[in-house]
Design a protein around this nucleic acid. Sequence first.
DNA 1: GTTTTGACTATTTTGTTCTAAAAGTCAAAA
DNA 2: TTTTGACTTTTAGAACAAAATAGTCAAAAC
Lengths: 207, 207
Amino acid sequence: MATATHCCENEEKIAHILEAAQKRFGLYGLGKTTMQEIASDLGTSKGSLYYYFPDKGHLFRAVVEKEQSLFLSFVEDKIRELTDAEMMLKAYVKIRQTYFRTFLNLSRFRLEDIREIKPLMEETWADFEKKEKVIIRKIFSKGIRDGIFSISELERTVSLFLHLMKGLHHRKTKNKGIFYLEPEEYASLIKDDNLFTEIFIKGLKYK
Amino acid sequence: MATATHCCENEEKIAHILEAAQKRFGLYGLGKTTMQEIASDLGTSKGSLYYYFPDKGHLFRAVVEKEQSLFLSFVEDKIRELTDAEMMLKAYVKIRQTYFRTFLNLSRFRLEDIREIKPLMEETWADFEKKEKVIIRKIFSKGIRDGIFSISELERTVSLFLHLMKGLHHRKTKNKGIFYLEPEEYASLIKDDNLFTEIFIKGLKYK
DNA sequence: GTTTTGACTATTTTGTTCTAAAAGTCAAAA
DNA sequence: TTTTGACTTTTAGAACAAAATAGTCAAAAC
């Protein structure tokens, strides 16, 4: 065990590793990043990384999970400030847009990379989806409670909303080998997101 | 030139080839189907196929285009029978579901296959999308004219609707190497489609 | 003249081996 | 407890041969 004065060293070290890994993975993807490079960036040795992470895949996963939880807590915070379900949903969509642009740097994660370690990541993606659904469900439930939304199948509607949004983003980014959008393509995606949200919200409202 | 009594032989032959090719492509995909197999199915020789189609890619494309135009004319017919924009849109979605299940046998076309001859097919997909948009635009326009839909950005809304639907289908079929859905997955997709259509229509309606 | 044929060539895919690079291990050192 | 770097193992890629398949064409059949 570490002494009292060094109680945070371990976590700090891990945080540093995650930071360095995130930079490399974010820029070059999983396949084009070596453990050696990450170690060199940190001025440490490769073997050291294996003291903290069992393998490259788990390091990658840790980076992704860190970004996911950053996104989730950011959304939670923003939503807590709001009182109106409609506003909440719009805020959620907006933050999600930003998240995919800046936080996770998904624009740089290559498609292949994500498939490469599919078995390991599957649980992570599923878990993230669950957590996103919790948020959306909360928003929809509030809307129902407040008498502005009329939703007969809550679970299916939550799932549908998320799938529609994911699908919308996916369609725009596929067909290219990598996740990357030209500025005007991105702007168009935002517009689509907003129009979608507007129509969907209106579609949920009481008449 | 063929004589009067044989005026349709050429087209008949082509139709036969398309039929045989469609069966093979539908079952095994582009990559796992050989020209020899198609020829053997027809009791003819490989060289004969090349008399009618310049190469395998063009044969594949012809099969896809035939299925696409079957779908389009079927939708057009159904919609002509209806008077209400809401019903039209629901009919369109329903036929689209059937189409992807039975007509095009997309469930069997493998993802890789479609990318394999991407440059050749790109125009075909784009053309199909245009034609789908024409139909959706017609329906939306009718809804506006009849005073049941309130749409400020018609073009974007048409495009959004199609993209949302495509995305919804895509999400369900990806993650597997091939387009295939278990019956209960398919049933769930249909339910999602219907809920989506309902919410979207409500979202378009005048208040 | 139109269509079909099958032997032909060209191209692509597949399997193999080899090599270099990177992943991952571990006993010794800090 | 953590780090190190030499070590072994695994994977990715290049190069090549072999097999399968696409695509051609002159001659034959209709």
